[in-house]
């Protein structure tokens, strides 16, 4: 396989979706942990920890979706129409998540806060699970016909493997969110968040081991590339080291380093996924010939070239704003009169 525009776009779409996993991953995780807090004030702190950034984090998904549409229209069309009800559920979860964050602080009543707390937490859990189930199906493969269309229904997508990956993604986001919460909080809530990091790491490592073994047994094609290019084993190595580094630096109270390690572990997991899938974006369980690949599902080279120019102009700016915003809002959360 040589480097061409199709391959570049496979990586770029991958990077956008990885950016989504690494960034929105922690605010989904904060959402999943939200109800474990004890007081109304703690919940406000949790919300304000992600307040300035969650919306920008979600843009990675929106842009990733747009890039998928532009670069691999057949994949966008097949997956979104084929996984219809799953995507509708994801959309409703994302809608409720966004409005719960915005609405919660708008009224003083206790019941109002509680309703939106539950909404926020539940929608974060459901979104994480659904994203994981979608990933699980891409790894496992789905029935794609010669006409590039999905030939199943909602229940085709629900099986132990895809649910397992759903749980893995939820666990990963919870770990990631717990570390972020620890980094952004002080006092009792901080101690509590450190407890979440411990528990969610156990949850994550268990889910990680189970899905890895299941993948080795049932989906060996995901590892074919690693056999051909042994240098790629650096990725799982980095992944394991990054995960192992989390408890080490957490014990020293270095929350920021733990968060970076967590980012690296999510990034390398996504990279392993992307390399394992190559050259397929959607693997057909009916006939591997019918899989949607980075060649047969792509836009024309001309369009991929134009899009590359757009990405080269735009993405440095995006990285610039993202870094500046995180820098401006660095440090522990302080509730102010402009907070949620």
């Amino acid at each position: 396989m040589h480097l061409d525009l199709n391959l570049i776009w496979y990586f770029l779409v991958g990077i956008l979706l990885t950016g989504y996993a690494v960034l929105d991953g922690f605010d989904m995780g904060v959402g999943a942990l939200h109800l474990f807090t004890r007081t109304d004030r703690d919940r406000r702190i949790m919300l304000n920890a992600i307040g300035p950034v969650w919306d920008g984090n979600e843009v990675w998904l929106v842009t990733g979706g747009g890039a998928l549409f532009a670069a691999f229209p057949d994949v966008y069309a097949t997956v979104f129409s084929g996984f219809y009800m799953a995507f509708m559920l994801l959309l409703f979860a994302l809608i409720f998540r966004a409005v719960a964050i915005e609405f919660r602080g708008k009224e003083p009543m206790g019941w109002w806060h509680q309703v939106w707390d539950v909404c926020f937490s539940l929608s974060s859990v459901v979104s994480s699970l659904l994203i994981g189930v979608a990933l699980g199906n891409l790894i496992w493969g789905v029935p794609i016909g010669a006409d590039k269309e999905f030939q199943g229904n909602f229940f085709t997508l629900i099986h132990p493997y895809s649910l397992g990956v759903g749980v893995l993604v939820l666990a990963a986001f919870m770990m990631h969110g717990a570390i972020y919460a620890a980094m952004k909080t002080e006092g009792e809530l901080h101690e509590q968040a450190r407890g979440w990091v411990r528990n969610s790491m156990i949850f994550f490592v268990a889910a990680y081991l189970v899905t890895t073994v299941a993948t080795l047994i049932h989906v060996p094609r995901m590892f074919a590339a690693f056999g051909r290019y042994p240098a790629l084993f650096l990725l799982p190595l980095v992944n394991v080291l990054a995960i192992a580094n989390i408890p080490r630096v957490m014990a020293k109270g270095k929350d920021f380093q733990a968060f970076l390690s967590s980012c690296v572990s999510l990034f390398s997991l996504m990279a392993i996924f992307g390399i394992g899938m190559m050259p397929d974006l959607v693997y057909s369980t009916l006939d591997p010939q019918w899989s949607l690949t980075l060649y047969n599902a792509a836009s024309s080279p001309k369009t991929l070239g134009i899009m590359l120019v757009i990405a080269l102009i735009g993405m440095p700016l995006v990285v610039g704003y993202t870094v500046s915003i995180y820098w401006i809002f660095r440090g522990k959360v302080k509730l102010e009169n402009t907070s949620y």
Partner: peptide
């Protein structure tokens, strides 16, 4: 139309949404 129409949507994400949501935080 993905080849044509998708490009405009992707450009919207790259040029508009990131700018808007980033500075919205401030």
């Amino acid at each position: 139309v993905g080849d044509v129409f998708g490009s405009a949507l992707a450009a919207e994400g790259v040029f508009a949404f990131f700018l808007e949501s980033g500075f919205l935080a401030i």
